[in-house]
């Protein structure tokens, strides 16, 4: 049953560009990018219970690394995607190593401050980012072929997304995933079981930065323009809201949240002040009444309804 559903979804995703308009394909690319961003957030918050508030900054690092790799070095895009992820992870490793030396919340605070600082860097480092004018992203290439349209980019973006979902599932089921959850549930018990707590947190944090970096590279494949304004705290909060709506701690929640809430936020783009109020209210209301996310909430209530 579950396999059939997955196959149906996959078939739908594959035929999507054949049956829909350009805007829909663009939106699909965007939602898939958000899915990867959400998976990264899921690993650090949902699995390991650590707070990272620099997802947007790592996303930006991914975009610019990929832009640089495409133009300055002329790398084929698979290489630049990998490079984007690795650069983001490396930066994350440096920040995390410092922040995780002390209190837990320092990771949240240091990443928050780091996010603000990175936005400043994006605005100031004009030669790479175009500064306040924004950057025209050069098209990605593979064996001399240029990817110029959303439609051309879509299969690539989809393939990367599926790869990242697969990787997340693999990690979650592995010894590493168990170590993440052990740290989340009880640090002292994890220590007593031989889990090196600080290293584990650091790995979770670096992995989430890697995912955000890859998402940046995905964005660079189909987008033509990026402005530092869209790489601020707002984007981090958007990703956080998606993960919360989907349900903290579940992979399908992270994916579902990215898609459902990605659509909602696309609708809300016209009204920025409502957008803020709605994001905020969603975060508050979900934490109050449905901390396990929309899907678990609906599931629980359906069960209760069926029993009544």
């Amino acid at each position: 049953m579950r396999i059939l559903g997955l196959l149906a979804a996959l078939a739908g995703l594959i035929v999507l560009p054949l049956v829909s308009t350009g805007y829909v394909v663009y939106l699909a690319n965007l939602l898939l990018t958000f899915t990867v961003l959400c998976l990264g957030m899921h690993i650090v918050i949902g699995e390991a219970g650590q707070f990272s508030l620099a997802q947007a900054a790592f996303f930006g690092i991914g975009i610019y690394t990929s832009g640089l790799a495409n133009t300055a070095f002329g790398w084929p895009f698979p290489l630049s995607v990998l490079a984007s992820g690795l650069v983001a992870a490396l930066v994350g490793l440096c920040i995390g190593t410092l922040a995780l030396r002390m209190r837990d919340i320092y990771l949240a605070l240091a990443t928050f401050a780091f996010g603000e600082a990175m936005q400043w860097v994006f605005l100031s480092w004009t030669s790479v980012t175009g500064g306040p004018n924004g950057l025209r992203i050069p098209p990605a290439t593979l064996f001399g072929l240029e990817i110029v349209s959303d439609r051309q980019a879509y299969p690539v973006v989809l393939a990367i997304t599926l790869l990242m979902i697969w990787a997340t599932v693999l990690i979650a089921r592995s010894r590493l995933g168990r170590a993440f959850r052990a740290v989340r549930e009880s640090e002292v018990a994890a220590l007593a079981m031989g889990v090196p707590v600080r290293t584990t947190k650091l790995v979770a944090f670096a992995l989430s930065a890697f995912f955000a970096g890859v998402a940046g590279a995905m964005f660079a494949i189909y987008s033509t323009y990026i402005h530092p304004d869209s790489l601020g705290f707002q984007t981090t909060i958007l990703v956080l809201t998606m993960v919360v709506v989907g349900g903290l701690g579940s992979i399908s929640g992270a994916i579902g949240g990215a898609i459902v809430f990605g659509l909602i936020s696309e609708l809300l783009r016209q009204a920025p002040s409502y957008q803020e109020i709605i994001y905020g209210l969603i975060l508050i209301i979900f934490m109050m009444f449905a901390p396990r996310g929309l899907f678990a909430f609906i599931g629980d209530n359906l069960k209760r309804f069926a029993r009544a």
């Binding site: 168990r178 549930e185 009880s186 031989g194």
Partner: peptide, 22 residues
């Protein structure tokens, strides 16, 4: 642990598997 320090949200099997971490 004197005051239980279980991995509360995880299953019995997962708890024990984390014990086998090393």
């Amino acid at each position: 642990f004197q005051n239980l320090e279980l991995f509360n949200e995880l299953t019995v099997l997962e708890n024990i598997m984390i014990g086998a971490h090393v």
